[in-house]
Write a protein that binds this DNA or RNA. Structure first.
Length: 492
RNA sequence: CGGGGUGUAGCGUAGCCCGGUAUCGCGCCACGUUUGGGACGUGGAGGCCGUCAGUUCGAAUCUGGCCACCCCGACCA
C-alpha cells in the first residue's frame, strides 16, 4: 500500500494541515481566523454530538439555548471571568449600515446607529446564562438545574489552526446550579468522567484526568478539572474541562435560593465543555501518512464496499451478491456504502476511503465470487485478507469492535512510552527537548515556580492527576519539598 | 505585532540571479482501450504570472509600495 500524502510537510503542523485538507475535513475561510467545516469533518462532529448528547441526557441533563450576544454590563459582572476573556472578545457596537457618500456602491457603518450598550459576542456563556438563572431559581425545589447548550462561540485568537484554535468554534457548554457545595463538586467530577469515558471509549484517545493549577484555571472557577491527551508529536492537548465555579457566579448575578428551612443562600455552580477541538485530537492521535484513521464509533461511514469488475454484466452479478450484505450490515446499525460508481476505478476508491479514514473496506471481484470469498481490509493496520463470504456481516461487526479496541490500545501504548519521570531540572530540560511527551516531576506548588519553568522551557503543568499517588520528593526547580509529582508538557 | 518564507491554469510547480509574452505533472473535456492499489493512448480546453506604481523599446523576471497566505515567536482555559 502506497503513501498518498506528499512528503512536502516539513513539520508536524504542515503534516496536520495536509491530513485535514486531504481527508476533506475543513479549510480556512476567507473570514479572518474562521474555519469552514466540510461535510466529512462535520459528519464526525455529528457523531460526537449524538454520543455526548445521549450521555448528557443519561446523567439527567436537558438542552436549552441562550443568546449569542452578551451585553457588556452582564459580561463584566463576574470580574475574574471578564478579565480572563477581555483580550479576545469580538464586540458589536452598531446595528446599521448606510450608503457611503464618498464611495459609490460601498457601504459604511452608520454613525447614528451606535448601540447604547456594546454587545460582546459570547466567548463562553456563563454571564448570559447566570443572568437568566436568576429568574429561574428561588427555592431548593428548583435545584439542581442541569442544562446543556450546543452553540458556537467566538474568541479572537491571534494565531489560528484548523479545529485547534479558530476565531469561531462549535462546542457544548453545560451550566448547572446546585443547593450544596458537595453536590456541585460531585457534578463537576461526574461530567469529567463522562468526558473521559467519551474520549477514551468513543474517540479511542487515552486521557489523564486531573485538576489544573491556579495559573491554568478557568477564569472565574474555584477548581478546574481537565482531561489531557498526548498527540503524536509529544505535545499535550487539553481535550475537555469541567469547572467547579463555587458561588462566584451566583454572587455576581445575585442568584439565591431558599432551603427547606427558609434560609437564603447563594447556589453552587459548575460549567463544562468540549469543542470541535476534539476533532483535532482525533486527527493528531490516530492519523498516519496515508491520511486519517477514524475509530469505528465515530466514523460517519464505517464500511465501504468496492466492486471489482469488467463490464456491466459482472457488476450486476457482484451487486446481487453484495446487496444482502449491505442490508445485513445496516440491520446491525452499521453505516455502509456500496460504491458501484463506474466513473472511478477500484484503486482510486481504495486510496480515497483510506485518506478519509473509513475503518473497514470490503472488495469483491469475480475471482472472490467464484471462490466464495470476499476481501476484507482494515484501515488502522493497513492489512487485508481474503475471507469466506459466508457470515461476512457478523465478521465485520466483530472487526469494528476489534479496531475500536486496538486503536485505543495503540494510542495508550504510545502515550505511556512517551511519559517520563525526571528528578532534576537538567534532566527535565533534556527529556523535554529530546523526547517531549508527559513529564512527571516534583513541583513546590507555587505559581512562581510554574511561571519560571514555563518562561524558560515553554512547558506548563498540564494537570495534577486525580489518581496521583503521594510521594515525597523535592521540586526540580526550587528544591523545596513536594508531596507528589505533577505532569508537565508543551501543549497546544 | 516581530523574524523567515511563498504568491505563476482547479491543484502542485519550473522559469526570476543573467529582461524578449510562460515549463512540467496532476486534474478537467472528447473518443477508444481498460478496471484485483490512485489505468493507458490520441486529441483538446484552460493564464491580464497576487496587486499598484516605477525603470526599460520590451517586465513573471529588476526597483519600491501594498495585499494575501504559510511557518516560527508574541498571545491563548
Amino acid at each position: 500500500m502506497g503513501k498518498f500524502l506528499t512528503t512536502r510537510a516539513e513539520n508536524y503542523s504542515e503534516w496536520y494541515n495536509e491530513i485535514v485538507a486531504k481527508a476533506g475535513l475543513a479549510e480556512h475561510s476567507a473570514v479572518r481566523g474562521c474555519m469552514v467545516i466540510k461535510p466529512h469533518g462535520y459528519g464526525i462532529w455529528e457523531k460526537m454530538q449524538q454520543n455526548l448528547d445521549r450521555m448528557f441526557k443519561e446523567t439527567g441533563h436537558v438542552n436549552a439555548y441562550f443568546p449569542l450576544f452578551v451585553p457588556k454590563s452582564l459580561f463584566e459582572a463576574e470580574e475574574k471571568n471578564a478579565e480572563g476573556f477581555a483580550k479576545e472578545c469580538a464586540i458589536v457596537t452598531h446595528y446599521r449600515l448606510k450608503a457611503d457618500p464618498e464611495n459609490p456602491g460601498k457601504l459604511m457603518v452608520d454613525p447614528n446607529a451606535k448601540l447604547e450598550e456594546e454587545l460582546v459576542i459570547r466567548p463562553t456563556s456563563e454571564a448570559i446564562i447566570w443572568n437568566t438563572y436568576k429568574g429561574w431559581i428561588q427555592s431548593y425545589r428548583d435545584l439542581p438545574l442541569l442544562i446543556n447548550q450546543w452553540a458556537n462561540v467566538v474568541r479572537w485568537e491571534m494565531r489560528t489552526r484548523l479545529f485547534l484554535r479558530t476565531a469561531e468554534f462549535l462546542w457544548q457548554e453545560g451550566h448547572t446550579a446546585h443547593a450544596t457545595k458537595q453536590e456541585a463538586v460531585e457534578e463537576t467530577e461526574r461530567m469529567l468522567d463522562v468526558y473521559a469515558d467519551f474520549v477514551e471509549n468513543y474517540m479511542a484517545v487515552p486521557v489523564l484526568r486531573g485538576i489544573k493549577t491556579a495559573n491554568e484555571r478557568f477564569a472565574g472557577a474555584d477548581e478546574t478539572y481537565c482531561i489531557e491527551a498526548m498527540m503524536q508529536d509529544g505535545k499535550a492537548l487539553q481535550a475537555g474541562t469541567s469547572h467547579f465555579l463555587g458561588q462566584n457566579f451566583a454572587k455576581a448575578f445575585d442568584v439565591k435560593f431558599a432551603d427547606a428551612t427558609g434560609k437564603l443562600d447563594y447556589v453552587w455552580a459548575t460549567s463544562w465543555g468540549v469543542s470541535t477541538r476534539l476533532i483535532g485530537a482525533l486527527i493528531m492521535t490516530h492519523s498516519d501518512d496515508n491520511g486519517l484513521v477514524l475509530p469505528p464509533k465515530l466514523a460517519p461511514l464505517q464500511v465501504a464496499i468496492v466492486p471489482i469488475h469488467k463490464g456491466d454484466e459482472e457488476l450486476k452479478t457482484i451487486s446481487e451478491k453484495i446487496e444482502p450484505v449491505v442490508k445485513a450490515l445496516r440491520a446491525k446499525g452499521i453505516s455502509v456504502k456500496y460504491d458501484n460508481d463506474d466513473k472511478s476505478r477500484p484503486g482510486w476508491k481504495f486510496a480515497e476511503y483510506e485518506m478519509k479514514g473509513v475503518p473497514v473496506r470490503l472488495a469483491m471481484g469475480m475471482r472472490d465470487l467464484a471462490a466464495g470469498n470476499i476481501e476484507l481490509a482494515r484501515r488502522d493496520t493497513l492489512t487485508k485478507e481474503v475471507v469466506p463470504f459466508e457470515g461476512i456481516a457478523d465478521r465485520v461487526e466483530k472487526l469494528l469492535e476489534q479496531i475500536q479496541h486496538d486503536m485505543f490500545e495503540k494510542a495508550k501504548k504510545y502515550r505511556d512510552e512517551g511519559s517520563h519521570h525526571v528528578n532534576s531540572y537538567e534532566e527535565f530540560k533534556k527529556v523535554l527537548d529530546e523526547k517531549g511527551g508527559f513529564i512527571y516531576a516534583h513541583w513546590d506548588g507555587t505559581p512562581e515556580t510554574e511561571e519560571k519553568i514555563k518562561n524558560e522551557t515553554k512547558a506548563t503543568i498540564r494537570c495534577i492527576p486525580l489518581d496521583n499517588k503521594l510521594e515525597d520528593g523535592s521540586c526540580i526547580y526550587s528544591g523545596k519539598p513536594s508531596k507528589q509529582r505533577v505532569v508537565f508538557a508543551r501543549a497546544y
